[in-house]
């Protein structure tokens, strides 16, 4: 019997589900292996009877926790997809500011109408079985994780920094181009796609297991950043991880 699969989203841009919708012809191959019972991007039907749940987006409100816990209860495997779900993502930028101030900036006098708390990854609320990192995720890694799960295998996700892929792709190091890059502490698996496109790594896949943060900060300072600016580079995506 084909495993039943469902997709859910929380606070995020839905860009990750879009990558899955963008599988195009391959989505038909995927449907040969799994039965999608809930996926708002491509279908109307919905069922709470599923084996694997893919969750996109961060948890940013207490009221969303119940929905997450229900998903955990229904599914035997829960997979976080995309930076918002895996590490908190861009959403956690707001964690550096006072929540009331944040609300006031956006909603002014009506701030009291909106509730929010520190943006957090899904595994801060429920246990997670697998991660598809990235902002957005790549089709290839999503398929890698799906195939691994179908084979009954724990998906292998790199625990080395983006530099490894950058070197293999023969990129000119961002630091040699007066860019400030957090690739040396960021988990690889993206095939260094942002550097390949001429820019630098922003850190969307989160930190490797044992990042040498002091060294990375010293490198940033060595190449011309102030200490505060160096620390600031870690805030963009590592907001939740650094708090832990």
């Amino acid at each position: 019997m084909k495993p039943k699969v469902a997709f859910f989203d929380f606070a995020g841009c839905e860009g990750d589900q879009l990558q899955i919708a963008n599988l195009e012809e391959e989505i038909l191959d995927l449907l040969g292996q799994v039965e999608v019972v809930s996926f708002r991007e491509v279908m109307k039907e919905h069922s709470d009877n599923y084996d694997i749940a893919f969750v996109e987006g961060s948890c940013t409100r207490l009221q969303d926790e119940d929905r997450l816990k229900q998903i955990r209860k229904n599914a035997s495997i829960v997979v976080a997809i995309g930076a918002c779900a895996t590490i908190g993502g861009i959403n956690s930028l707001k964690n550096y500011q006072d929540t009331d101030v944040v609300k006031k900036i956006v909603y002014g006098e009506n701030a009291h109408l909106f509730d929010t708390y520190l943006a957090r990854p899904i595994d801060a609320v429920i246990p997670i079985d697998a991660y598809v990192h990235g902002c957005p995720i790549t089709k290839d890694e999503f398929l890698h994780v799906v195939k691994s799960l179908l084979l009954g295998k724990k998906p292998e996700i790199p625990n080395y920094p983006v530099c490894v892929e950058c070197k293999k792709n023969e990129n000119v190091c961002a630091f040699e181009r007066e860019e400030f890059c957090v690739g040396p502490v960021t988990r690889a698996g993206c095939n260094s796609c942002c550097v390949n496109e001429g820019t630098k790594c922003w850190g969307c896949r989160g930190l490797v297991d044992n990042p040498n943060e002091n060294s990375q900060k010293e490198v940033l300072v060595e190449y011309g950043l102030s200490v505060d600016d160096a620390i600031d580079k870690f805030k963009l995506y590592f907001g939740w991880e650094k708090k832990k």
């Binding site: 080395y160 920094p161 530099c163 490894v164 070197k167 293999k168 690739g183 040396p184 502490v185 490797v208 044992n210 990042p211 040498n212 002091n214 060294s215 990375q216 010293e218 490198v219």
Partner: peptide
């Protein structure tokens, strides 16, 4: 090695 980032750049190139 105190500052080593374990990035493997030295061996990959």
């Amino acid at each position: 090695s105190d500052q080593c980032l374990s990035c493997g750049s030295c061996v990959l190139v």
